[in-house]
Design a protein around this nucleic acid. Structure first.
Lengths: 172, 172
DNA sequence: CGCGATTATTTCAAACTTAAACCATTGGCG
DNA sequence: CGCCAATGGTTTAAGTTTGAAATAATCGCG
């Protein structure tokens, strides 16, 4: 019934497989997480202290700034890598505070298009400038060469991770 | 500590500073964030599907597993790099579900020490094994040399970030 | 001893986040 | 046309998360 019937060595082979040996990957993952958390926490604090804005609001505005013609909520959800409902709530509060405007698309009545308002855009550009400087400050000890190397290695990591993602609900 | 504190010419100097040139740091930061998010989201899904557990619960138990003698809530808060109140809530739910036990420390009545219960420990070890394999799978395309290099580079990044963290509430 | 500063934890309000259920609209396709 | 799957968003429930305020206990020091 099982491979043992055919290839008797399998059971043993299995038993001899290293019971661990993926520790380095794990260490790398934990370090990645630590770095991200450190930076993220500090950016969050500075955004709060300096601009009275939360990180997710900043992130959303950052995405919008690169799309002067506006963007669909679904598109935003994909770019921010967060759930639909999350975007709905964030947008709601940002519209409320005057940073965003939201308009239905006449050609497709399901779609909502969001844009930065003038005030939103101008507030954001001050934040973005500071933000860029903060990151530069935090990464200061890395040389251009090291940055380049990290970019490349993380690109490879990303390429390694992507194919392992399981489709949540496969139809077909 | 930097020149800004002493030299009054700063405002002008600032105006003449290159208006950009820190783009690579920013790109690196965004890529770091993307990698972390991809992995984290997938791990969260697999933990849910396979073990009906959330990522923060898993993280908390992971910290506890390495401290068989238990741990203080404050210690947990530091290790997980999350707020105190957050830990209080997580622990509450994990005690409720039988994974953790919590006991006051007689020698210091402010302190609560938490430990994994036997069931908690056994449930966790199944999760941990799967978790390690998932990470190994996701990082599969990286060679041992690349992993080593990334570990080192991220170590340097961490060392670069740490000194830039502002003390939230400075007394003195 | 007594008091003020510090430390450990909890509480609280607001916001964020997810997954799942739901609703409305659109786009095929017979 | 009429149905039905797919798409775009919103809603909902539960949980996570933060930062600040509140509590409680300990510590240091005169």
């Amino acid at each position: 019934m099982n491979a043992t019937d055919i290839l008797p060595l399998d059971a043993e082979t299995k038993a001899f497989e290293a019971p661990h040996g993926h520790k380095d990957e794990l260490r790398l993952w934990l370090r990645l997480l630590t770095c991200t958390n450190l930076v993220e926490t500090e950016i969050r604090r500075r955004l709060r202290d300096g601009f009275d804005v939360t990180l997710p609001r900043f992130d959303l505005m950052a995405q919008l700034e690169r799309a002067p013609q506006g963007m669909t909520l679904g598109e935003m959800s994909k770019r921010m890598m967060v759930s639909n409902g999350n975007v709905t709530g964030l947008v709601e509060r940002l519209v409320e505070s005057g940073h965003l405007e939201r308009a239905p698309l006449p050609s497709d009545r399901r779609v909502q298009v969001i844009k930065l308002t003038t005030e939103g855009r101008s507030e954001f550009s001050a934040m973005a400038e500071a933000h860029e400087a903060w990151i530069a400050e935090m990464f200061e000890d890395l040389s251009a060469r090291e940055i380049e190397a990290l970019l490349k290695a993380l690109g490879k990591l990303k390429a390694s991770v992507l194919p392992t993602l399981r489709d949540a609900g496969r139809p077909s």
